[in-house]
Design a protein around this nucleic acid. Structure first.
Lengths: 332, 332
DNA sequence: CTCATCGTTGACAACGCTGAACTAGCACCT
DNA sequence: AGGTGCTAGTTCAGCGTTGTCAACGATGAG
């Protein structure tokens, strides 16, 4: 029982294989009657295109590479899931690549490890457009989150605005010594989006910036990293009444550190996260956070990528999407 | 600047295209000298195979579909990540499919939604081999976790053994009224692996089984589900000194429910999870759990799948892998 | 009534690769 | 000398699809 081919459908419909192909590709210049006859024949013989054949003839694969640093971070897992489902809606299949470090991300963007695809959507961890220098990626690439560059289309989550909003919320509740738990010095210089939001909010309230309130974890999104950073800050003797964390996982570690030092949240110290992951609802106390509009981010990324694949040329674009403040017990 | 083809390499190396192909495929009947010459030529012209061409000619795609119910559960996210990386080691690319419900899982197994692949690895949520009845999948399929069936090769995580171990641990610490938080009645009838482990441990200690200690959540792995189940159990007035949960996420919700009712863990009630996700280290208190040997599971699944793709025929096989008890504060 | 035009369809040649079948050369045996 | 068996390599014909271009019939203008 061979799998039916275009030719089989063609015989059935009494037309040439090429006409069947045209119908399937939605090409113009096929009469409605023929179109209908072909569709019927396709259904009757149970035809499905062979992507290998199509790929060979057209030079396209119908596949998009989605590159994420890992899947254990809920933020990336959710983003990957949304991307896969949204791309499937567009009849595009997906190949997921895990890029553990900056080199792997660069290779994915430059097409070294992503050859068999029409385009790449990268959700970067370390990556910024700068690392590829002047080498243009051989295939369309869209960056989803992270720091934008002049080279690659980028969807920028409203990190700055979101982070500023959460800091303003803390300031408005009367807390003025707000510690900031980040991942590494590189988030300050060059200033990361979230750090910029922090500074902007302080400015708006006329609160002086105090370097002693910065704490750095060793690893971006491990809970342990937040724990270590918090312990370090407590040992330093710095005084603070709120802790803003760059993400929920870090905040989870911070909460644990505060608890183990007998500091009550939010009574003595308020804590906030970022990303609004599922977990935040179940920490003790539940965690205030900022929810990026992932649906919007994904839609924009796919739109831009498809335009590029369709041949759109021009300078790198930048689209900003929104973020929403989610208040829970940890900052009441 | 055309992308180089086999023919280009062949000219460069002074052999036929077929010989280059043979070298690339590691076929015998090529002298060491020729082999070396070809390799050099490949490197010089920067040749990379065109998977579409290869696929069309060979009938294989070099791609495996990995099917998971979602990515927001750390257990599946980690499994997917491991699978992707391990398959990449074997020069197999991966297409990740999200199958939200049993129908989607069945379609993936039966090849309806997974056409362009050489094989399928399914990490099931609802799926059991029975739903496909007598329809044989058109492509090799391996099931990773879940309930085995007579139809499909299956890697069974040592759920029964692992769950029995954690219950024995609770019993050994003197707790005899052990509540069990599960997802739905179907885990009891037909008996799920974890439920079987629970019963076996009770038997071994001569502790009578008490139906009043069973609690059911609405959803498999949502934290909220554990929360609701626990609240229900507390309202029922049942008395217990330990709660064993079918997974960490459920346990996280249970901890929250106990806390909000002022019940101290582990002083009054011990709590255990399953899966040993990262999160368990950061709950309050930290969560005792069972760690499945995912590395082993993944390796076995891939081995079986490759054997099938290589033409191995025969009845469905079943491989059991281990699980390891991880003790933390929640059951001290 | 003829000719140009337009919309529709078909013939054919790729696309890059591999399987099957074949050949040339050599060593070994009878 | 002639057959046999093996290795190293080649030739050729597709695999299923789409792009190019030519051919066709119908239509409308002159």
């Amino acid at each position: 029982m061979r799998r039916p081919t275009l030719a089989d459908v063609a015989v059935r419909a009494g037309v040439s294989a090429k006409t069947v192909s045209n119908v399937l590709l939605g090409r113009p210049n096929v009469s409605a009657a023929t179109r209908e006859r072909v569709r019927a024949a396709v259904a009757e013989v149970g035809y499905v295109v062979n992507p290998a054949g199509r790929g060979l003839a057209s030079g396209r694969t119908g596949r998009i590479a989605v590159v994420v640093p890992n899947l254990y971070q809920p933020y990336f897992a959710e983003l990957a899931e949304r991307l896969i489902l949204a791309l499937a809606e567009c009849d595009l299949s997906t190949t997921l690549r895990i890029a553990h470090d900056g080199d792997a991300e660069r290779d994915a963007v430059l097409g070294v490890t992503t050859r068999d695809v029409d385009g790449v959507i990268i959700c970067p961890h370390h990556f910024t457009g700068h690392v590829i220098e002047d080498r243009m990626p051989p295939r369309p690439v869209v960056q989803l989150g992270g720091a934008p560059s002049r080279l690659i289309d980028c969807v920028v989550m409203g990190e700055r605005e979101g982070f500023e909003a959460v800091i303003r919320h803390l300031l408005a509740s009367g807390r003025h010594r707000i510690a900031l738990v980040m991942t590494g010095p590189e988030m300050i210089e060059p200033p990361g989006e979230r750090f910029a939001g922090y500074v902007a909010a302080l400015d708006a309230y006329g609160v002086p910036f105090d370097k002693a309130l910065l704490a750095f974890g060793s690893d971006w999104d491990r809970r342990m990293s937040g724990y270590e950073a918090m312990v370090g800050l407590l040992r330093s003797g710095a005084r603070f009444d709120a802790v803003a964390c760059v993400n929920d996982a870090t905040a989870s570690g911070v909460l644990r550190a505060l608890r183990s030092h007998g500091i009550r949240v939010p009574r003595e110290v308020a804590v906030t996260g970022f990303d609004n992951t599922d977990e935040g609802e179940f920490t003790t106390p539940s965690l205030s956070s900022v929810s990026p509009e992932q649906g919007e981010m994904v839609a924009e990324a796919i739109r831009m990528l498809l335009e590029r694949i369709d041949g759109h040329d021009g300078p790198a674009r930048e689209v900003r999407t929104g973020a929403r403040l989610v208040l829970r017990d940890s900052s009441a």
